[in-house]
């Protein structure tokens, strides 16, 4: 072999090695697993995930169908179901602490039957559920939590900075607690709607119907309530050091549990005052206006 041939051979080897290295460095193709479980009425589904997403929607029959997609081999997805079909669990298991957020993310698409208990815990993964009735308990540090189109459901949410969005929920018992995330509600009604934040803003748009007890409490966040003229509420708003602004035509209450202070607190009734609405902030601004 002369010198020219040797150079050519070395070049081919080097090129092959480079190509092989590039191939190894490429991310793994998406790895999707689909699991189907039967779930007894009143059973529960639990999803534990860090990053990625969790999306829930209705299934047919009594089946739970979990489709999980991972983007690296540095995470595993563990499925558990009990023999009596009372509980199904899917859990993301990060294998290496050095994994990046992209490597450890998993996207869950979960089809669930109505009337079950659903528990989802995530760190940054957004949680979205729509058109499902049941008992929901969602917790996320930073992933947006969205609940749409449910009736006669229990909605329990814990959020650190995750924004929370609830819309078109009727007959719900909702307890929402967020430290710094905003909470937005549109057409959310039921026997009990309780929202509290430390610094997150709270927005409510709807008629507070159903004769329920609505309580919106914050430390430094703002509270904005927009009511239609037809709303039948008995409303009180109090702020220790924030401002309270009312643009809704309430009737003055005949009896108050506190002495209203202009700019700091007020109370009023609209129509028969069937629902109780209490707005409280420490330093955040409270505003009530007509839709």
């Amino acid at each position: 072999m002369n010198r020219h041939h040797l150079k050519t051979a070395l070049g081919v080897v080097a090129l092959s090695a480079t190509l092989l290295g590039s191939t190894l460095a490429l991310p793994l193709p998406n790895d999707t697993r689909k699991q189907t479980f039967n779930l007894a009425p009143g059973g529960s589904v639990s999803i534990v995930n860090g990053g990625g997403s969790v999306t829930l929607h209705p299934s047919t029959g009594r089946q739970v169908v979990i489709t999980a997609t991972r983007y690296s081999d540095k995470v595993e997805i563990d499925f558990t179901n009990t023999p009596e079909a009372r509980r199904v669990e899917a859990r993301t298991h990060v294998l290496s602490a050095k994994s990046t957020s992209d490597e450890s993310r998993v996207d869950y698409d979960v089809a669930v039957p109505a009337g079950i208990s659903i528990v989802v815990n995530t760190s940054t993964a957004p949680i979205t559920i729509e058109n499902v009735d049941g008992d929901f308990s969602f917790s996320s540090d930073a992933g947006q939590i969205t609940v749409r189109n449910a009736a006669n459901s229990f909605v329990h949410v814990h959020s650190l900075t995750a924004p929370v969005s609830l819309s078109n929920l009727t007959g719900v018992h909702a307890e929402i607690m967020s430290s710094g995330g905003s909470v937005q509600m549109v057409s959310v009604t039921g026997p009990k709607v309780k929202v509290s934040t430390t610094s997150g803003d709270i927005t409510y748009q709807g008629d507070c119907s159903g004769g329920g007890a609505y309580s919106l409490v914050t430390h430094s966040g703002a509270i904005n309530v927009t009511l239609p003229e037809t709303a039948s509420v008995d409303l009180s708003a109090q702020s220790v050091s924030g401002s309270v602004i009312n643009d809704f035509p309430f009737r003055e209450r005949s009896h108050n549990t506190f002495v209203p202070t202009p700019g700091r607190s007020f109370a009023g009734t609209s129509h028969s005052g069937s629902s109780s609405v209490e707005l409280q902030s420490f330093s955040g601004r409270i505003r009530v206006k007509q839709q």
Binding site: D141, A142, L160, T161, G180, T198, H219, S220, V240, S283
Partner: peptide, 19 residues
Amino acid sequence: MRATYEDSLKSVNAYIVDA
């Protein structure tokens, strides 16, 4: 998440003091 939890603790401690 360290900074997020730190901020949240600071906020909630201020809330407790005020309340």
